[in-house]
């Protein structure tokens, strides 16, 4: 059963290959090039996106007050601070902030995963997670899933490209036609995506607290509970309107 192994030195000095010589600390770049700095970027941009999600969820719930109420809300968003600023100014600024956050979040995530990949060039033959592997499995691929969903979501309900009501329709029409019982599969995709967002946030929100250095032994329970509660509220708040439409409660 034993295999003959070529004899290597056991105690003699080891010749390290040139590429693996002691890394001289490179001239340190700025905060944003450090792994910690990138995590802070993820935490802060994540917070921007979570704030957006909370407002977006509250806006969606207007559909229960009727099409008029929903459309009025959509119109109000575009006329914020009018006539002080022209039509759609505030909304456009918010949209730019959101897009910048999404891009920076993705940049930091990609850059950190590349760094992680380089830190473990040789993989384990056997590797068993001891922390249930939740974050490891949900965050990166979950993020990709959410990004793909957002593209579909914009094409569907914002630009109306893949929506039966089309672009020249009211927001409420797009929403109600989009989740029509005949398009049950759209609702299904939506449910899966929203649950993915919830799973992403359950770790992400707590992780942001940790990254920003707010977590400690006394607060940890409360911070984890906050992250869990926020995820559950967002998932429920986002799932109720489309399910209500698909099941014919809202017409």
């Amino acid at each position: 059963m034993t295999a003959t192994i070529e004899r290597g030195s056991a105690t003699a000095p080891v010749n390290t290959p040139a590429s693996k010589k002691t890394p001289t600390p490179k001239k340190q770049g700025g905060f944003l090039t450090s792994s910690n700095g990138k995590k802070v970027v993820m935490a802060v941009t994540g917070a921007v996106m979570v704030s957006f999600l909370v407002l977006h969820m509250l806006g969606n719930l207007k559909i229960f007050f009727g099409r008029e109420s929903f459309n009025e809300y959509a119109h109000w968003l575009r006329t914020l601070l009018e006539p002080f600023v022209p039509y759609r100014t505030v909304l456009t600024i918010l949209e730019i902030g959101l897009v910048v956050s999404v891009v920076l979040h993705m940049w930091a995530a990609i850059s950190l995963s590349r760094r992680a990949g380089k830190a473990r060039p040789v993989k384990y033959v056997a590797k068993k997670s001891q922390a249930n592997g939740y974050a490891t499995h949900i965050m990166r691929w979950g993020g990709v899933t959410i990004a793909l969903f957002v593209i579909w979501h914009l094409l569907d309900l914002t630009f109306g490209v893949v929506n039966p009501a089309g672009y020249n329709s009211s927001p409420a029409d797009r929403m109600i036609d989009g989740f029509d019982p005949s398009r049950w599969w759209v609702t299904l995709v939506y449910v899966v995506a929203v649950v993915m967002v919830g799973l992403h946030l359950r770790h992400g929100v707590w992780s942001a607290f940790q990254t920003l250095g707010w977590a400690n032994k006394d607060r940890n329970k409360a911070l984890r509970a906050t992250a869990g509660l926020l995820s559950i509220v967002l998932v429920l708040g986002f799932l109720v309107p489309p399910l209500a439409i698909t099941f014919g409660v809202v017409k």
């Binding site: 890394p23 001289t24 600390p25 490179k26 340190q28 450090s34 792994s35 910690n36 990138k38 995590k39 950190l112 760094r115 992680a116 380089k118 830190a119 473990r120 997670s129 001891q130 922390a131 592997g133 939740y134 974050a135 490891t136 965050m139 770790h203 707590w206 992780s207 940790q210 990254t211």
Partner: peptide, 14 residues
């Protein structure tokens, strides 16, 4: 730690 080539923390708790 960064200069040595270690990865960043994602708070997985492993």
């Amino acid at each position: 730690m960064d200069a040595e080539g270690f990865g960043g923390c994602t708070n997985t708790g492993e």
